[in-house]
Nucleic acid binder design. Sequence first.
DNA 1: AATGAATGAGCCTTCATTCAT
DNA 2: CATGAATGAAGGCTCATTCAT
Lengths: 202, 202, 202, 202
Amino acid sequence: MSQTGSRKAASQDRRAAILQAMLELIAERGFHDTPMSMVSQRSGASAGIIYHYFDNKEELIHSLYTEVKIDYTRALMQDHPENLPPAQAFRQIWLKGYQYHREHPQETLFMEQFENAPYFEKHPQVPETEEALSRMLALFSTPEGKFKDLPLEVLWEMSLGVASRVARQEHLSGSLGLDAQKLDLMALACWQAVSEQPSAQS
Amino acid sequence: MSQTGSRKAASQDRRAAILQAMLELIAERGFHDTPMSMVSQRSGASAGIIYHYFDNKEELIHSLYTEVKIDYTRALMQDHPENLPPAQAFRQIWLKGYQYHREHPQETLFMEQFENAPYFEKHPQVPETEEALSRMLALFSTPEGKFKDLPLEVLWEMSLGVASRVARQEHLSGSLGLDAQKLDLMALACWQAVSEQPSAQS
Amino acid sequence: MSQTGSRKAASQDRRAAILQAMLELIAERGFHDTPMSMVSQRSGASAGIIYHYFDNKEELIHSLYTEVKIDYTRALMQDHPENLPPAQAFRQIWLKGYQYHREHPQETLFMEQFENAPYFEKHPQVPETEEALSRMLALFSTPEGKFKDLPLEVLWEMSLGVASRVARQEHLSGSLGLDAQKLDLMALACWQAVSEQPSAQS
Amino acid sequence: MSQTGSRKAASQDRRAAILQAMLELIAERGFHDTPMSMVSQRSGASAGIIYHYFDNKEELIHSLYTEVKIDYTRALMQDHPENLPPAQAFRQIWLKGYQYHREHPQETLFMEQFENAPYFEKHPQVPETEEALSRMLALFSTPEGKFKDLPLEVLWEMSLGVASRVARQEHLSGSLGLDAQKLDLMALACWQAVSEQPSAQS
DNA sequence: AATGAATGAGCCTTCATTCAT
DNA sequence: CATGAATGAAGGCTCATTCAT
């Protein structure tokens, strides 16, 4: 059984290596400039065996997306502070999102590409993400701090979407000079955008 | 001269037809799932003649990007209101941006894809866009209304970037139920994000 | 008539320009890397009009070959010395051949390529060449100086063939350091090869 | 190991079949009238697999040239007689050269074409050929028999160059009626051309 | 006669996927 | 399970030739 165990482990390693290779290559070159032969080479797996783990290239990419999305969601929710005023909670989550994207540029580029690719059938919802999202939302439906009355998608774009895109731009074009103070200002700006402001209308 | 003129006109028509076909197809299928043969078919031009108008596929796409970008910029600046309070000016521009994206989903999808494609060398700056951008910026460096002290790229993502991405999502996933009131709220939210707020609570 | 004459002259000029362009381009790039469009460009003739002068690319090349071959033959026979001892006559002709090839590298490269191209149907004999050849031969069937009893083609390769190939090599690889003395030695060597030697067997 | 061996053998066979097909086709039709699809068909290999063995068409042709050149060189040096008077040694080598070209018309046509093709960058020296050439030269720098004081390229054209071109002509235009006696006479003629003659008449 | 835009067959090459070993 | 040679359908692009103007 220990043998079976190690075989299984080796198998999981190989699967992971393939996913990792695909992730790196897509970030570097894009979907279509990433031939399976290159994934094979980079991952150390033979061309044939990849089709043992994944039905085809498309399915491999969908699997990768699911894994990355879960990883990202976990990062967002990790060490989640309980009992914090909404503004603070938002700030922390926003900063964690930004940090994730900065520390995982490949994942960021990949998600961006994937979500922009019209030839990929709509990816099924990732349950982990859905659940985390609703947990997050609950934090911001309190008397002390509410979101504006806008669709969830819009709120997302105004907050974590901005974090993602700014982090991606920083990665691609070098630094934008965002120090801790500027990051705080950005988190605040997003909070001002999504939250009900005391005396809004200028 | 009328003969030369009509020949020129026909030639321009064909060029435009090719660009249009490429635009539609990229929006529908993406760069790499758009073979030149399909562009040829859709545009009614023969496969060979495309290379009379464009050096190669890549150059065709770059040309398309330039044209679309200019078109978009024009839309943003059209009927530009002089002597408006910054908050109002911002609101108008934001709404025009949003409107453009809603009315030009293909252009929107295309720009998004193009700007996300790692295999496209940096496209040369489009002068029209640069100029419009600086004209816009001038509107928001007044005592009555200033932008937050954040890089231009960040401000863009928090404002017109949001308009683009929300419009794109609406196009892809059907309506998000954004009526005029919600759009106003969104424009305001973006303004709150990018502008210096009177008493920013911590 | 003067108009007709000048029209005819212009027409001939154009024809010549086309042939010249093709000659240059083939020498520089070879048959197959010489598109008709390039011939059109270099010659200043439109793509369409070329087919007014020549049936197709192949016929154009055959016409060029005929012209070049006649030109070459004329050069060989020009100022032909009468009443010279065979050895002297041979030397003069050989040197004229060599000189032609040095002064006309494009023609030389073209003839070489043409005669080596398996896809060109056998070119019909050029009468001018045939006639010149037999006039030349007559010079070397005298008691004082005879050719060896070998087929004409062999004698050709041992004499003017060598001149052609050496001149071509010099052109391609820069100088081989062939001064007047060496050229004389080469002419002599060829004469020794083709002529009956007094006491041959070493 | 026998398995690996046979796989290797099969692989070598296929490589050889591709080279052979290319050789035949170039001899029949020339480089540019030999599409890869035809090489694929003639060799029995699929179109794609050719690129497993060779980077591209050009590299395939260069590889072919190297192989043919080595083969030719081997033929020239095979059973090389030691301690023969230079005139005899020359005669033997010349005849072997001629014989090779007669027995290998495809190789002959191919080499001729290759060496005449302006679009092929200079092929890297083939070491085997270089070495054989210098071994040959040594035979003809003795008191009893010397070459004329002419560049090596010239001597080559006057000797083995002639053998090649005559053999090629015989192949293309049928027999020139060259029996053993005539061949001996040709070998002698070439020797007379390249060697210092006792009393060279002017 | 002259132009040059247009055609479309064909070329070289790539690559997702399969399958004999 | 694993390998990697093999397949063959495209894909981007070229170019000899035609034809509307």
